Simulated assay, not measured.
Amino acid sequence: MSLRMGSELKLRTGSETKGRPGLGLMSIDTKFEGMHSMSMLAELGKQSTRKGTATSVGPAAVGPSSEATFEPEPKYRTDYRYVPKQDAFYKVHKELRSWYDAYMYCESEGSSLLYPKTEQEWKLFKGLVQEISPNTSDVWVGAHDLFAYDIYVDTDGKEISQYYAPWSPGEPSSGRTNREYCVEVWYDGKLNNNDCFEIYPFVCKRLNRDITFNSACQTPDPEFIPSKDGSRCYKVHKQPKTWTEAFSICNVEQAYLSIINDKEEAEFVGQKVKSVIDGVLGDFNRNHIAVGFHDKFSEGFYKTIHGQNLNSVYHEWATGQPGDKADGEDCGALTADGLLDDVSCTKSRMLFVCERDIEINEERQQTVAEEVDENGEEME
């Protein structure tokens, strides 16, 4: 179940898959729930400006009061689309992944691999995919029979037979003989069971009611904590990963592998990792923390992942480092003593910290102050 976040495979379309027609999806010109185009989905998330109580679901109700009140726009990740009729956020992933990787990728974004549970959501699913990836012939959905033969459940473990489950004629079939444990929407627009290691696009979903937005860090992830001035936010990851994996995970979280700008930040990142490391089990490099610099482009020419020369930021190396140039140690780490070292990008597993830059204004400073007071977490 490896998480292949860096896949750059070309999108498979109907014309590229054994001559089959494209997935039986609705035309973009088809009317859908009062819309003339799927591109109008974005419009559904916009606030009404009519006088009265406005919501993102419908027009404002005009009451006796002359004062207008407005429900705030729901917030989630900036790469997800809000659909008011479902009160949920959606994202179509065009990149091709196995069912397992699709499941984990949605989890990494704080969402779930979508299984449309109603006929209305089924139409939405088809329209979203058609808008982003026209003529797509196969798309993973969040259902499987991995737990028991021929008992198909969604990612919450509930049987999909209790929902809308339009199987293609003759399907599901040969589930155990051909390792066809996972469910896709097939070229005919209906369900088919298939080998979980086939690679297809997929859709992630997050219900609005399940989101508590972290306003101090402008993310739905509650594990990010702000610096004292609110200009940056940090998240300590407690599962050891290689440098390459850590870089990918931070990118998925709309953040980046922490760049150490000065000694104060080096001490802060080190202290945060030390505060959790004793509770992390398993065999990994406990003396290093993956951080955002490398010399992948030219041996000995160290740059941050944002292209800065390492000498323009924090560059205090541990004794004898950088190390042996023949070992392929092209990626950056911070030692337990707060000094820099170079390590293998793909062999050594370490803890790491993801970082986000936050735009500062007067309103944000107040929000950060309130959240720091509430949870007591801040960069000293």
Rank of each mutant, 00 (worst) to 15 (best):
M1I: 12
M5N: 14
E8G: 03
E8M: 06
S15R: 09
E16A: 08
M26A: 14
K31T: 12
F32C: 06
S37P: 04
S37A: 11
M38P: 08
L41W: 09
K46V: 07
K46W: 01
K51M: 13
G52D: 04
T53A: 02
P59L: 03
S66M: 12
P72H: 02
P84I: 06
P84Y: 10
P84S: 15
S98W: 10
S98Y: 06
Y105S: 07
S111H: 02
Y115S: 13
N135P: 08
S137V: 09
W140G: 13
V141S: 15
A143P: 05
H144N: 15
L146G: 14
D154M: 10
I160S: 02
S173N: 12
T177Q: 15
N178S: 08
L191P: 06
Y200I: 06
I211M: 00
K235Y: 04
K241N: 03
K241D: 03
A246R: 00
V252M: 07
V269L: 13
V269S: 05
G279Q: 13
D283T: 03
D283E: 04
D295P: 08
S298K: 11
N309W: 11
K325Y: 11
K325G: 10
C331S: 10
A333L: 07
G338I: 04
V343L: 01
E355A: 01
I358E: 05
E359N: 14
I360E: 09
E363D: 14
A369D: 13
E370R: 14
G376T: 09
E380H: 14
